[in-house]
Amino acid sequence: MIINTTILSWVTFIYFGSAIFYIFRTVTGKEFFGPLASFIALAGLIAQTFGLILRWFESYKMGIGHAPLSNLYESLIFFAWTIVLLYLIVEWRIKSRNLGAFVIPFAFLSMAFASFSPNVNSRIQPLIPALQSNWLISHVITCFFGYAAFTIACGLGFMYLLKGLEKEQSSRPFLRFLPGREVLDELTYHSIVIGFIFLTLGIITGSVWAYSAWGSYWSWDPKETWSLVTWFIYAAMLHSRFVSGWRGKRMAIMSLIGFASVLFTYFGVNYLPGLHSYF
């Protein structure tokens, strides 16, 4: 095993620890776990950044240098990285740790899938000609920031629905601990806007890449089509908010549906017949 994959598989455990502390904090209502969880998440992020940079260097040492964004393993790792980065920014901006229990587990799952699934090859591979493009790099970065923002929206949606279970008195302490519904709703909306902008950028940069590699900026292959479907879902969601004023529960459910579509765009598409499933 090369050093970077060792570091990255350790990061999986770090995120696991962080997720556990966030969940402890939310369930027990003891603030004590909060700073610990944040600190571990930040440490994990730093270690992961280091691991990614190291992987980049190692690929150059092997003479096949390229940014670590080129296969399923690297994309899963990057996905986790964007989730944690975006999450920590949100935590810092809203000065609340409630969201962690709903978001950091996704980062852990992505890392665990990358590190331990037998179907995911963690070796540094050279780039086949079609992938040798700077547009690919911008495409992957924008897409995954979008996906991460949608992941956060999905976590918020979950939280909203959980909060909906709260009854006046009988409720468990941790439900009362969660932020108010308007706050959640507003945050969901902001995450989706950020995700939507990045998804749009991702589709545009992907088209530019396709235009320089395959001769057509849009060829309705399953991955492209599903990203458009995802775009439509979120566009419909934003419109129902802007124009019909949909809020709250409906938005929460839509954010789960949207996220399901994101996941399918990312993973499911590989089970469909297609021209270029990239990994």
């Binding site: 309705w220 439509f232 419109h239 469909l272």
Partner: peptide, 15 residues
């Protein structure tokens, strides 16, 4: 919204 949903479903069929 209706059109977006129909187009989305049709596009999925196409995949």
């Amino acid at each position: 919204i209706t059109l977006l949903i129909i187009i989305a479903v049709a596009s999925i069929l196409g995949t």
